[in-house]
Amino acid sequence: MKWVVIGAHLLRDDIESPAEPIAAGELFLSGLAIPDEQPAGDRELLLRVARLRAALLDRATFIAIRYGFVITSRDEVAAKCAPHFARWRELLEKHRGQVEMTMKVVATTHAETPQRQNFTSGAEYLRALHAATKAVTIDPSFREEAERLLADGRWLHRDNQSLELAALVARDDVEKVKHNGIALKERFPQVAFLLSGPWPLEVFGE
């Protein structure tokens, strides 16, 4: 048996079946037990974890651990996660009443994707990819309104086609933010964007 680790939680009661609580210092990790022979890339498993992640978030805010962290023994947790425990606890206590929301905005201008075959150096190729990602711009007036909707957010350059804004939102305000997102769409019909959430602490959990 092995466990796909889903997140770090403040309380044991924040974790519901079929996820199992795994002690992690003063915290608990949620893990989904799977057979040893089941690969982590299994499509059904991915979907199962995605559903479970949403159910856990309904219960309480947690720090998301990127999919792919699989342990074969509960003892591995302390060895691999102990350096994070103090910070995780601080973040979980501070943001217990909040969730993340993100807005992905299609770029107004962007650089072309560098083509691997045009580079003789891998480092140069990676630098070009980085520069292309940073070159993305969006409508400044929309950007201002987005920052008003998702206050104190962080803009993330994730690719060379879009920009993403992530912010913490009080759980009680999620519906209001979604409603205001619809109003924003009506005001800026020319801007393609996707407002999504609630999500666990992903950007703000790092």
Binding site: L46, A50, A54, I65, R66, V70, L194, E202
Partner: peptide, 20 residues
Amino acid sequence: ELSLLETLDHLLDRGVVIAG
């Protein structure tokens, strides 16, 4: 479908990375 794609994007590309 959009919701599923977005969910999988968050699952695979966000959150704390633990060394394995």
